[in-house]
Amino acid sequence: MVTPTALEAELFEVAGAVPDPELPVLTLQELGVLRAVRLGHADAVEVELTPTYTGCPAIEAMSLDIERALHAHGVREVTVRTVLTPAWSTDDISAEGRRKLREFGIAPPRAVRGPGPVPLELGPTRSGRTTGRTPVAAAAGHAVPAGSAAAVVEPTQASAQTPAEAPVAAADPIRCPLCGSAETELLSRFSSTACKALRRCLACREPFDHFKEL
């Protein structure tokens, strides 16, 4: 374990202040993707960056922006290295980052208790069973064919056979970032980017993005 020098800490601040190219309200430090800034020989600096999602195309823009910022700060040689371990998690987003996301209209991710998908729900299907893991009122305005076991709302069991699947705190609702209501519904589990899901507030009726837990 090497303690960063004062200069390294200063350069970390400079690189960390670079805005995220996709969500410019957040800095890379708040997003938690900047892992280390190390001073090599002379004024050569090595930066360790981790992608949010494996396929996130923003990582290249981030690297370029970091290089530019450090060059502007007087560093001659910058190498940005992508590291995968330990895997980034939405828990790495700082409290300030979460506040900014909410202010920007994106519901921040909830704390992750373990890897795996968040329990989500679609409407009831023909036989009256829900497709999600959370019971949904089968009578919530959805037509259920007569004679089907509409009353039996049978939550799908979290597949015991899939490993490492401890859902995020299900009791912790995703709140509308606009009005704060806890009554929101899922529209699509993938939104404008892989890291977000599209939801709608049932109180103010506004659609909004939710930064999915990862």
Binding site: T54, L84, P86, W88, G116, T162, A194, L214
Partner: peptide, 17 residues
């Protein structure tokens, strides 16, 4: 191992979908 630890979280969403 490193890639798998990262990607398994993404694939969990694919599987769920």
């Amino acid at each position: 191992a490193g890639l798998a630890a990262k990607a398994v979280k993404e694939v969990a969403y694919h599987r769920d979908h």
